[in-house]
């Protein structure tokens, strides 16, 4: 059963991801970014209890430490010296900058983890096929060949291993050469197969007329509603960004990190935009509890 965020039309989901990624790049303010990181983390937890995110956590962690350590060393903008490191002044502005860049990247990587869970290849290809049908067909054909080829490679490898070739031992030169021999066999074999597949396509009428396609997704009223509110809140956010809200002024004078006045409005809108999947999932949890309570 498809439910929650995954029940939305792929186009709405794509718009959501594009908006979030652009937003993460434009909104360079520690509080905005930390709020975003927290919500993206929650989103990950709701989807699969953070299992996929854990696989990426090492890489994300490495990147963050790398950026936070390196940015202050190379960035010399600002005038508030924190301390000296090898006779180089470390600026408060640069440290803040480093934290902001690190959270932007961490946010983008973490949101891509959910992207891979939510926008499965079939949805992605559906979107593709609307704009670029030839590319979508090509990608689909290619994807279909991958498992087939892997099966063939494994078969060939085990046959060759029986004959004494090895892929796991010996010098790099030897291993690479043996591996490539397999690839060569695969090439000839696959090319012959591809001609057969193509002729079978032609026999079934490929290219005679415009290709029809199976449409698995339909824009429902809730999709239109969501799309509207996503667009609406991002227009508000863009307006705020253009006026300088949600961007921390680093120079000439460092702005205070605390929010003030109308900046709160933009902050709430930003949290709403990112937290929209959590809201939809939360709504279902409330429904469930309600039904349980009624029984």
């Amino acid at each position: 059963m498809v439910r929650g965020i995954q029940s939305f039309h792929p186009f709405v989901l794509l718009v959501y991801y594009v908006l979030i990624i652009i937003g993460l790049m434009l909104y360079q303010h520690p509080l905005f970014l930390l709020g975003a990181l927290f919500l993206i983390g929650t989103f990950n937890y709701i989807l699969d209890k953070g299992r996929e995110l854990k696989k990426w956590s090492f890489m994300i962690g490495m990147m963050i430490t790398f950026i936070i350590l390196l940015t202050p060393i190379f960035n010399r903008r600002g005038d508030q010296i924190l301390f000296h490191f090898f006779e180089q002044p470390i600026m408060l502005e640069a440290v803040i900058q480093g934290i902001m860049i690190a959270s932007t990247l961490a946010g983008i990587l973490a949101i891509f983890v959910t992207f891979n869970i939510v926008l499965t290849p079939d949805k992605l290809l559906y979107l593709f096929s609307k704009v670029l049908p030839q590319w979508a067909l090509l990608t689909m054909l290619s994807m279909r060949f991958v498992p087939l080829l892997i099966r063939k490679v494994k078969e060939m490898m085990s046959i060759q291993q029986v004959k004494g070739l090895s892929f796991n031992q010996g010098s790099v030169h030897k291993r690479a050469k043996n591996g490539m021999q397999i690839m060569q066999m695969l090439l000839t074999n696959a090319l012959e197969d591809s001609i057969q597949a193509a002729d079978s396509m032609s026999a079934r009428g490929y290219g005679l007329q415009k290709r029809s396609n199976y449409n698995a997704f339909k824009m429902k009223s809730k999709d239109w509603l969501t799309l509207g509110s996503l667009m609406g809140s991002s227009i508000i956010l863009l307006f705020g960004w253009a006026k300088g809200y949600g961007v921390l002024q680093l120079g000439p004078v460092l702005e205070t990190i605390m929010l003030s006045g109308s900046e709160y409005i933009y902050f709430m809108t930003w949290l709403f935009l990112i937290g929209f999947p959590i809201l939809t999932e939360g709504k279902e949890v409330i429904h469930w509890k309600y039904y349980q309570w009624k029984m």
Partner: peptide, 29 residues
């Protein structure tokens, strides 16, 4: 995207793309 390809050409490109992608498998070590 605007070009008319024969089915043979299309499938050949698809399988070459798949070979390029799969070719990481025997070299994973």
């Amino acid at each position: 995207a605007k070009q008319n390809l024969s089915s043979r050409e299309l499938v050949l490109l698809a399988i070459l793309g798949a070979i390029a992608a799969v070719s990481r498998v025997p070299f994973s070590s």
